[in-house]
Design a protein around this nucleic acid. Structure first.
Lengths: 341, 341
DNA sequence: TTTGCTCTTGGGAGCGCTCCCAAATATCCG
DNA sequence: CGGATATTTGGGAGCGCTCCCAAGAGCAAA
């Protein structure tokens, strides 16, 4: 039952291999009753086409890869990535694609994985989570002939397909919100240095301040690295500067920052207001509910898959970019609403 | 350069297709200088064998699947799963396997995904995250001829390969720890009903109490579902019963429970002690650092892959089980150590 | 030199599909 | 009703590899 081939089905249905193939692949030009007959045989036998054979003959595997380079170590600490992965998985489900996951753990992995990814006949294309500078793997992938879509704005965007949210605009909106609420000393906690997300969110923060006629105070900019702890420590550094509001480049860091604020015996938003980024589920359940930038994360994943699909079928010129918009979700931590407690 | 075949390499090296194949696959019986010559051609041309062709000819794809059934919705809210996925990915990297991910989002997905998984020629085997009752997908997979390893104790373990941690023993240890510390009214917050993890952890809790000569008080057992919020609500239910300690079946729920305790104006561990389960990174960074059961999660993933590999190469009889042990990590929330603040 | 062995090498067959072209059949219209 | 055209069907070739068997090479012992 498992070992049936096209030819077997053909024999049982009294038609040729080609006809069965047409039925399986929904090609037109098969008469209605022949199609019915074949379909019935397929149904009763439980025939499944052999994927390896199909891939070989059609030069198409319907497999795409999701590559998480070593620089994306926050896959495990930041809920953003599991959500994104889920979105991508949904995108694959919708497009009859199978998703394979390449998590680069170490330098040795990197060297073993690259050949595996680029082996012909395995993947139709890859999605690369990137936006980190000097990422050798990403660069190799871009240069290769494999259809590639970068998730996150790459540093060299020349001729590269990518999808990203408009981080500059989002950070600007978030910061402007704090400005409008009348905060005077607005600080920021940045993400991991050397990544485009970090740069863009910082840029948006600066633009908002500058546009409102303020100076950028470097003392109000603290470096984090997208982890809870880094948010905590960054906030501890910030506290002596007496900020009255903070824009954190991720919810996880905002949560760490709030912990630091509480530990210092201060209140949110009373003493320090807080705005995060991502809108992960945690944001709605922290002690003081977090005002944050909502990313359309499932849609993000789905669109990434669709973009890749497009590149696979239509070639990669011209390079395509998709920039998604975000939304500011106002909860308690910014002080715009009275906290409920 | 991408389109090279075995035959091309053979021609350039002045040998036959078979010989090149032997070199590529590290078979013995190739003379040293021929091997060197072929290797050199491969190196300079950048030849990569075509995976689809190899799969078709060898009936082996070196692709394994990780299936997350619909019941595992906590993939996105509980950091446990990303970690496990990472462990599995490492296992694959070590064994020259490629991992493909099947996340079932909806009922329709379920029906579309199963055929995709069971298609011949695609996967050599699957890892199924399960331990949920009445999981149709899991049952079908077990019945299929595809080598399958269940992650988590399945309800019908007859003839089924699985890997799990010893949840009963771990929960027992955690509860006994609270007993030893002299707590009198020890409550528990359970996981999602109908899953073996939930049952086993509850069982361990009960065993510990019974062994110490206590009665099981159903009022001290609150149902959660492995999310932060559910821990919060479960704790709110528990609070009127005045427990002096709580064993939560996951760190995320423990964190929610602590939030409820703080909201009620009580302290941890002063008023209520807390022990969690999983030892996710969050556990070490909560306001009051969490005493919890550490799971060897990366090793878990790696061993799951190795078990599957074993089943693939040696067949699935007899069924194999791996049960891993856990470790209790004592921090602040249980009151064994003086909290630092 | 011949025989018998081992080690190395080459080539045929085949994995199960798709794709193309040609043959067979149906359909249309003057 | 015949010829032109459209639709349906069949079969060959080929995708790039592995696996098997047989032929060739090399060598030692008789």
């Amino acid at each position: 039952m498992t070992e049936l081939t096209l030819e077997d089905i053909a024999k049982r249905a009294g038609v040729s291999r080609s006809t069965v193939s047409r039925v399986v692949n929904d090609s037109p030009n098969v008469s209605i009753d022949v199609r019915k007959r074949v379909l019935k045989v397929i149904q009763t036998t439980g025939y499944q086409p052999n994927i390896a054979a199909r891939s070989l003959a059609s030069q198409r595997s319907n497999l795409i890869g999701l590559v998480l380079p070593r620089s994306v170590s926050s896959f495990f600490t930041d809920p953003f990535f599991p959500h994104l992965t889920q979105g991508i998985a949904f995108g694959c489900n919708n497009n009859d694609l199978t998703l394979s996951l390449f998590i680069v753990g170490s330098k040795e992995d990197e060297e073993k994985i690259y050949p595996r990814i680029s082996r012909r006949g395995l993947l139709d294309g890859v999605l690369v989570q990137s936006g980190q500078m000097d990422d050798k793997l990403t660069e190799e992938l871009i240069k290769s002939s494999l259809p590639t879509v970068i998730i996150g704005r790459p540093f060299t965007s020349e001729g590269v397909n990518y999808i990203d949210v408009d981080n500059v605009r989002a950070a600007k909106k978030a910061t402007e919100h704090l400005i409008k609420l009348g905060y005077k000393r607005i600080a920021t906690i940045t993400g991991t240095p050397g990544s485009s997300v970090t740069e863009d969110r910082l840029e948006g923060y600066k633009q908002a301040l500058t546009l409102s006629g303020r100076m950028i105070d470097e003392n109000l900019i603290a470096k984090g690295e997208f982890s809870e702890n880094s948010g905590y420590f960054a906030m501890q550094q910030l506290l002596p500067q007496h900020p009255d509001a903070v824009f954190a480049a991720s919810d996880i860091m905002a949560s760490g920052a709030m912990r630091a604020i509480f530990d210092a015996g201060l209140r949110v938003p009373g003493d320090v207001a807080m705005v995060g980024f991502d809108d992960i589920p945690l944001a709605a359940t922290t002690q003081v509910k977090l005002t944050t930038v909502h990313q359309p994360i499932t849609r993000f994943g789905v669109q990434a898959v669709e973009l890749l699909q497009d590149v696979i079928t239509n070639g990669c010129t011209p390079a395509r970019h998709i920039i998604l918009d975000t939304e500011l979700i106002i909860r308690e931590s910014c002080g715009a609403n009275k906290p409920r407690r």
